[in-house]
């Protein structure tokens, strides 16, 4: 696997095929946790961390347990259980070894199990037949893309809170319209890489 392919994958998963803005994965936390910049950063780091770990874990489960025994059809069930277990495990490890990090990230971790970005990465990795390195890199890139979108959104929303927005659009509706604008801006990145 060439280094070029890896870099290309990272750039593409952050900017061009941004998980939130182009693939619509992880919309719930994107709208729910983007009201404050601090919590957006915390959530972004937690998601990136879990995405990287879980895409590697899902790769091992699929390659060594499911695929050799012809159990491909169990992958949805297997992945969601692996992710749930992994999130629990990460939570326990962080609580034990780094209480400071736990107070920063702890509240976001349980939310991540039902974040469709995590299961989405695992499923896409299988679909595209990525190897271990590519799977992990793709997970990390997807997480970084998610973080970028979340932070941009939180920065804008902190200011929007204080604006005169038509009553009916306050809250979620204006957040979606804002997301539409950011997504429009991100479409400009599409020319960066020749597919």
């Amino acid at each position: 696997m060439s280094i070029e392919a890896v870099i290309l994958l990272v750039v593409s998963s952050i900017f061009i095929n941004n998980f939130v803005l182009a693939k619509f994965l992880g919309i719930c936390p994107f709208i729910g946790v983007s009201k404050k910049l601090d919590s957006a950063i915390g959530m972004g780091i937690a998601v990136t961390f879990v995405l990287t770990l879980s895409s590697a874990a899902a790769w091992f489960v699929y390659t060594y347990l499911l695929h050799p025994y012809g159990l491909d059809y169990l992958k949805t069930i297997a992945f969601i259980l692996v992710i749930a277990a992994l999130v629990q495990f990460v939570e326990m490890v962080i609580r034990k070894f780094s209480p400071a990090l736990y107070t920063a990230l702890g509240i976001y971790l349980p939310l991540i199990t039902t974040n469709c970005a995590v299961l989405g990465v695992a499923a896409i990795n299988v679909q595209k037949e990525y190897n271990l390195l590519m799977s992990t890199v793709y997970g990390a890139g997807a997480g970084l893309g998610f973080t970028l979108a979340l932070i941009l959104m939180a920065g804008i929303r902190e200011r929007l809170e204080d604006c005169r927005i038509p009553r009916a659009l306050r809250g979620a509706p204006i957040a979606f319209i804002t997301a539409g604008m950011i997504s429009l801006a991100f479409m400009g990145f599409a020319g960066m890489i020749k597919e």
Binding site: F24, P166, P173, M181, M187
Partner: peptide, 14 residues
């Protein structure tokens, strides 16, 4: 395209 999805949903919610 993706932006249209966000815009439509936001406006409909409003």
């Amino acid at each position: 395209l993706p932006p249209g999805a966000f815009l439509t949903l936001g406006l409909l919610m409003g």
